[in-house]
Lab assay of single mutants.
Amino acid sequence: MAAGGDHGSPDSYRSPLASRYASPEMCFVFSDRYKFRTWRQLWLWLAEAEQTLGLPITDEQIQEMKSNLENIDFKMAAEEEKRLRHDVMAHVHTFGHCCPKAAGIIHLGATSCYVGDNTDLIILRNALDLLLPKLARVISRLADFAKERASLPTLGFTHFQPAQLTTVGKRCCLWIQDLCMDLQNLKRVRDDLRFRGVKGTTGTQASFLQLFEGDDHKVEQLDKMVTEKAGFKRAFIITGQTYTRKVDIEVLSVLASLGASVHKICTDIRLLANLKEMEEPFEKQQIGSSAMPYKRNPMRSERCCSLARHLMTLVMDPLQTASVQWFERTLDDSANRRICLAEAFLTADTILNTLQNISEGLVVYPKVIERRIRQELPFMATENIIMAMVKAGGSRQDCHEKIRVLSQQAASVVKQEGGDNDLIERIQVDAYFSPIHSQLDHLLDPSSFTGRASQQVQRFLEEEVYPLLKPYESVMKVKAELCL
């Protein structure tokens, strides 16, 4: 049975990233139509530049190519590739079939990587351009969430054990800070992308030097003109047959890092959902379990974690691919890159769409948070109580021993009897502590235990987050809708 299948058929496997999760716009960027249309555009740009620099290419040939950029006979191309065992030459023939007058000058002087690699770089750039505003929107939604809850005390956790208090907004800023680093890295790697350009079979530009009869300047002009037509500021000066596969490492490393950030955020949300302090959106008709109707599973956060793990592992592909590119190139890269580049971007696209949807509907339960604080705060307040007693004339050592005994009794009630923490009640009825009984409410005010959390939130948002989001103001209103 021949390899390949009808990918629109229910009898043929289709990647869930495309069929179930990723956005239509990201799927289109990695589609065959987008790819092969870009090949034709690159052939047109090459012909236009070659004509401008004096090669015998007519206006009629150029116009014929322009008129057929979208006229792609995919069936013919597939048949040609089956016959020739070469995808680029299959599309040269297919393009030439609908451009008979231009057929002889299509791909003039070029090698397969002229269309293959340059198209990949265009796709990487455009895919990054799709991700950047999506990530900015996630940051914006979380920034709104953090600002609104900047002063809401909550129990902090280290080692997932109760620690000092923080605020809900401050905790959210930990998430935002990681995503801001990801946004900066995505922008950097996007701006650092260079075009492969017009380089020939081993990167020496020998074929173009021959076409222009040894004119170095025209060869350099050709490279520059096509690079500018493709919208790049610069091209690699040095290439082998391909652009260095280190570029793929750079791009997928940034995406993998984004995956790590999203995994951490969504894990926190899942843990908070278990504590009943916070939940992701839950639709009115949504079913959490087929057997347990009360369940409210954090399905979206779980999906993000599941896909983020996949995204983090994909960076190993370009690392290994770059390491086995012998001399000017081997074909070890080809099949692998067809999979890992598309999957990385479709996965990143999915987790950003999902995280935006989550961040637009996060639900906080202040009463649950308050109750958990009441359970733990008495123990945390013991040092403040000791200091207040010393100020009232008591002995630190005597007070410490009193607190120690009462704390152990209260802990026994919590752990052995399943009761509430009654340390404060014990202190309130103990005559030894009568000098500070009137101060206990103040000493137990949760806001006095959150330090500068709310001020940190305000400063972080104003100095770091809002300036970073400013270039994306025009796209901030787009909502994230999930079908599944």
Results as ranks from 00 to 15, higher is better:
Asp215Met: 13
Lys66Cys: 11
Leu53Tyr: 03
His7Ile: 12
Asp73Arg: 06
Gly203Val: 01
Ala342Met: 05
Pro24Trp: 11
Phe95Arg: 00
Glu370Leu: 13
Gly156Val: 01
Thr94Leu: 15
Asn336Ile: 14
Lys276Ile: 04
Pro153Ser: 05
Asn336Met: 07
Asn336Cys: 10
Cys173Ser: 10
Ser438Gly: 08
Leu255Phe: 13
Leu174Arg: 04
Phe232Gly: 04
Leu152Asn: 09
Glu463Cys: 07
Arg234Glu: 11
Gln241Thr: 00
Thr354Asp: 05
Leu482Ile: 14
Gly5Tyr: 15
Ala388Gln: 09
Met316Trp: 13
Gln221Pro: 00
Gly240Thr: 09
Leu17Asp: 02
Gln458Met: 11
Leu362Phe: 12
Ser207Ala: 12
Phe208Trp: 01
Glu48Thr: 08
Ile436His: 04
Leu346Ala: 11
Leu121Ala: 10
Glu464Phe: 05
Pro446Ile: 09
His107Glu: 00
Thr330Pro: 04
Cys180Ile: 15
Lys224Tyr: 13
Lys284Leu: 12
Ser261Leu: 03
Ala2Gln: 15
Gln51Ser: 09
His217Trp: 12
Trp326Asp: 02
Leu46Asp: 01
Val405Met: 15
Gly240Leu: 04
Ile106Pro: 03
Leu461Arg: 04
Glu148Pro: 05
Lys199Arg: 04
Ser412Phe: 14
Gln375Cys: 07
Lys477Cys: 15
Ala411Arg: 05
Ile386Cys: 15
Arg33Ile: 08
Tyr466Asp: 13
Lys367Ser: 10
Arg396Thr: 04
Ala47Ile: 05
Asn126Thr: 15
Trp45Cys: 06
Gly54Ser: 08
Leu423Tyr: 08
Lys218Ile: 08
Phe195Gly: 06
Pro162Cys: 07
Pro435Glu: 10
Asp215Gly: 08
Leu108Glu: 01
Ala103Gly: 10
Ile176Pro: 01
Met476Arg: 15
Glu64Ala: 12
Asn274Gly: 04
Met76Ile: 13
Asn274Ala: 08
Lys170Arg: 13
Lys470Thr: 12
Lys477Phe: 11
Leu209Val: 10
Ser395Ala: 08
Phe195Arg: 03
Met76Glu: 10
Ala381Phe: 12
Gln241Arg: 00
His310Gln: 09
Arg85Asp: 00
Glu463Leu: 10
Thr450Leu: 05
Thr347Val: 08
Ala110Tyr: 03
Leu484Arg: 15
Val198Tyr: 08
Ala90Leu: 00
Ser31Asp: 09
Thr347Leu: 12
Arg372Met: 05
Pro100Thr: 12
Pro281Ala: 10
Gly104Ile: 07
Ile373Ala: 07
Phe30Val: 11
Ile287Glu: 01
Thr204Arg: 00
His91Glu: 09
Arg85Leu: 11
Tyr13Trp: 14
Leu179Asp: 05
Glu328Trp: 01
Leu307Glu: 03
Tyr472Gly: 09
Glu383Ser: 04
Ala411Gly: 13
Phe236Ile: 10
Val324Cys: 15
Val29Gly: 03
Leu165Asp: 00
Gln61Val: 08
Ala22Asp: 06
Asn185Cys: 12
Glu383Gln: 05
Ser434Tyr: 08
